[in-house]
Amino acid sequence: MDFTRLTLSDVSRNFGRRRALARVSFDCDAGEIVGLLGPNGAGKSTLLGILATLVAPSSGEVRYGEHTAREAGAELRRRIGLLAHDLHLYPELTAGENLEFFGRLYGVRDARARVAGWLERAGLGDRRDDPVSGFSRGMRQRLALERALLHDPRLVLLDEPFTGLDDGATFALVERLRGLKAKGCLVLLATHDLETVEGLVDRVAVLREGRLVEMAGGGGSLRERFRAVTR
């Protein structure tokens, strides 16, 4: 299955008595990068978890094109790539083994043969046989990004993708995101690096205490707008 539009309608999520998300509604289209902004605990990661089909909404609905996650099942997950705050890498395995394992899990053809290319793109070409436990946070972040994108997902969900990256890697990631947008991917990224994503995001969704308080174009100073909304 494939889709070019993501629609959230009144999505809420409660954890016990705590409401993490309250009636969030918006939609976005292929070829668009949407920035999810908000203070800590605003509900950004919960929203990404729901979009990734890992967390079920307490009420409301998410539609991937014409389908809900329940209707589309495993085939929908083939079209979603998630880079979470926890990097979803096995520290005991080498960089190459991690990518090969996830490549095979996602049914990527010739996963073993393609590992070298993926590692090269992550700037880790010479670290293929090194265990991930010895990597710095930035190196793990680059590897985890490759893991999230190795199956060419349509919907790319990124939670703080710039964490631990140096200037060069940050620039490379920004360029990569522009490439994904040009390819027709639908990118949602939660970040506090407002200056980095200025000029990159097409729209921003600002969350506060689980509520969507602003959904607007990505132009102008994000820092000033963020402060104005969350003050």
Partner: peptide, 14 residues
Amino acid sequence: HAETLRALMMAPAD
């Protein structure tokens, strides 16, 4: 440890 169970749950597999 690295929430890898969530990564497994994300895979397009039964």
